[in-house]
Simulated assay, not measured.
Amino acid sequence: MADDATATKPLIERNVARAVVLDEHERVLLLQVGEYGNPEFGTAWELPGGGIEAGETHTHALMRELREETGIVVTAEQIQAPTWRRDVIYDYRGSRRLQHEAISTVRLHGPAPEIQSLLRDAFEQSDLFDARWWTQQEILASREWFYPHSLPALLARFLSGETISEGLEVWDKAAWRANS
Rank of each mutant, 00 (worst) to 15 (best):
A141H: 10
A131L: 04
P82Y: 07
T59D: 04
R97L: 13
H60D: 14
R85G: 06
F129Q: 06
S142W: 08
S104R: 03
I72V: 14
N38L: 09
E138A: 15
I52C: 04
D121Y: 08
T43A: 08
E69W: 10
R96C: 11
I139N: 05
E65F: 05
P48I: 12
P113H: 00
E77C: 07
R64S: 11
R64W: 13
G37F: 05
Y36I: 13
G34V: 14
G110C: 03
F129C: 03
S104F: 12
Y92T: 08
P82W: 08
S104N: 08
G94M: 12
H60T: 15
T105D: 04
G71M: 06
G71F: 09
E46K: 08
S117Y: 09
E65Y: 05
W84L: 09
A112F: 05
L118R: 12
Y36R: 02
L118Y: 10
W133F: 15
G42R: 04
A61T: 15
N38A: 11
S104G: 07
G55K: 00
A112D: 03
E53C: 10
G94D: 06
E144S: 14
Q80C: 06
E138D: 14
R86H: 09
R64V: 14
R93N: 08
H100P: 01
L62N: 00
D121G: 11
Y36A: 13
P113S: 01
L119W: 15
T70G: 04
Q80A: 14
E138I: 15
D87L: 11
Q116A: 15
F129Y: 15
Q125H: 07
P82L: 07
H58F: 11
A54Q: 14
P111K: 00
V74E: 01
T83L: 05
T135E: 03
A122W: 06
E101T: 15
Q136N: 07
A76M: 04
R132Q: 13
L140D: 11
S142M: 13
A54N: 15
V88R: 02
H109W: 03
I89S: 06
I103F: 12
Q136S: 13
H109Q: 10
V88A: 13
A81M: 13
I89A: 08
D87P: 01
W145G: 00
H60S: 08
G37M: 03
L119I: 11
E69L: 15
W133E: 14
D91C: 13
F123G: 03
S142I: 09
Q125T: 07
I103N: 09
E69Y: 06
H60I: 14
W45K: 02
E68L: 10
A131E: 01
L98H: 11
E101R: 06
Q136T: 06
M63N: 02
E40W: 07
E144P: 08
I139E: 01
R85V: 15
V88N: 06
E46S: 11
D130R: 12
I72D: 00
S142G: 09
P111W: 00
W45R: 01
T135W: 01
I103L: 09
E69K: 13
A54Y: 10
E46I: 14
V106E: 05
R86C: 09
Q137A: 15
P39W: 11
L128H: 09
S126F: 09
D127I: 12
